[in-house]
């Protein structure tokens, strides 16, 4: 790229627009005609199990790989024809904290700032701003090898921001973190992107999409199977759910049988949690009926309630297999539900 090349102009369309995107590795179709629009000014979450094609998609957007077919525009730029221009407007934080343990936090940020094109003082100033934003100013001059896992992820997130990118790409930003650190990182992501940076994040955690995103795209086998706000997607699964927790696990079978006539689908029994959940048509009436029928049998309950479906249930409804089942395809026996093993269509790790 020539140094006098002008910065790509701002544009008003969607942040990311993919049409018919395909990428295959041998027989494996990591992206199988993926159509996706990430609206400007929003956080878009690409949600799906391991091997659904999420990482392949982010890599295509980040210009780390070239799709076999389809069109891809990032901030209005044709990413296949002009990847070098796309690199000027994106920031990428990957699945691993790609920070150098032997350098200090500040040195890591200055290094990436220089590689974004900042010079001397500019790079140091950008590093200072980001350190402050991610709450690492005090630890900034310590070697990263002394950081906790959460601090490294925050630093990695910060590194993707030192070039003031227009589009932030976060590939499974919290995978492998413990729940508390995950919540801390969510806080960091929230405060970092409030400035109006457009964000594309991938996640296999439904809760994460629910917490962070305005717009959720559910992907499976390299294709988009649903899009919408978290609340729209929950409506897609349709029904409210009556959920009952029994005191004695032996009653689970009886309760499931009692509730079955009330529901629109078979009741779902969760033995370890001693819970039965069943989607119903008319929520409040069904709830009253459920309490009455179970009460007449004299079965003790710990809890009973009516709730909206979770994204887990949305996923199950849309794909026929639960997202969690696919979390670890290496060790999980595929399919107590008769669904195909999800990793057979996936991208390589």
């Amino acid at each position: 790229m020539s140094p006098s090349h002008p910065a790509p102009a701002r544009h008003d369309g969607p942040t990311i627009e993919a049409i018919g995107l395909r990428k295959h590795y041998g027989d494996v179709h990591a992206l199988d005609g993926l159509d996706l629009v990430a609206p400007a000014g929003q956080v878009t979450a690409v949600l799906g199990p391991n091997g659904a094609g999420k990482t392949t998609f982010v890599k295509a957007v980040a210009t780390l790989l070239r799709p076999d077919a389809g069109t891809l525009r990032v901030a209005g730029i044709d990413a296949i024809a002009h990847p070098e221009q796309v690199r000027r407007v994106i920031g990428l934080a990957g699945q691993n904290a790609a920070v150098e343990p032997a350098l200090t936090g500040r040195e890591n940020l200055v290094m990436i700032a220089r590689l974004f094109g900042h010079r001397g003082d500019e790079a140091r100033a950008a590093a200072d701003v980001v350190l402050d934003e991610i709450g690492l100013t005090d630890a900034g001059d310590r070697a990263v090898k002394t950081y906790s896992g959460g601090m490294r992820r925050r630093l990695d997130l910060g590194a993707s921001l030192v070039g003031a990118p227009r589009v932030l790409l976060l590939d499974e930003p919290t995978t492998g973190l413990d729940p508390r650190t995950r919540i801390e990182l969510w806080e960091s992501i929230r405060s970092l992107v409030r400035g109006g940076t457009d964000v594309l994040l991938t996640t296999q955690y439904l809760e994460e999409a629910d917490q962070l995103a305005d717009h959720v795209v559910i992907v499976d086998h390299g294709k988009v199977i649903a899009t919408g706000t978290p609340s729209e997607l929950k409506t897609l699964a349709g029904r409210d759910v009556v959920e009952v927790r029994v005191r004695d696990g032996h009653d689970l079978g009886d309760v499931a049988a009692l509730l079955a006539p009330l529901g629109t689908e078979e009741p779902h029994v969760d033995e370890p949690a001693r819970r039965v959940a069943i989607p119903v048509e008319r929520g409040t009436a069904a709830l009253t009926d459920a309490v009455r029928i179970i009460g007449e049998r004299g079965i003790d309950l710990d809890d009973v309630g009516l709730r909206r479906p979770t994204l887990d249930e949305v996923f199950l409804t849309l794909t026929g297999h639960p997202a969690v089942e696919a979390l670890d395809p290496e060790t999980t026996e595929p399919s107590t539900h008769g669904a195909p093993a999800p990793h057979t269509h996936g991208a390589p790790a």
Binding site: P3, S4, R87, R88, L115, F116, E122, G163, A164
Partner: peptide, 8 residues
């Protein structure tokens, strides 16, 4: 932070 004027 201003986006850098030109790439390195």
């Amino acid at each position: 932070i201003q986006a850098p004027a030109r790439p390195p």
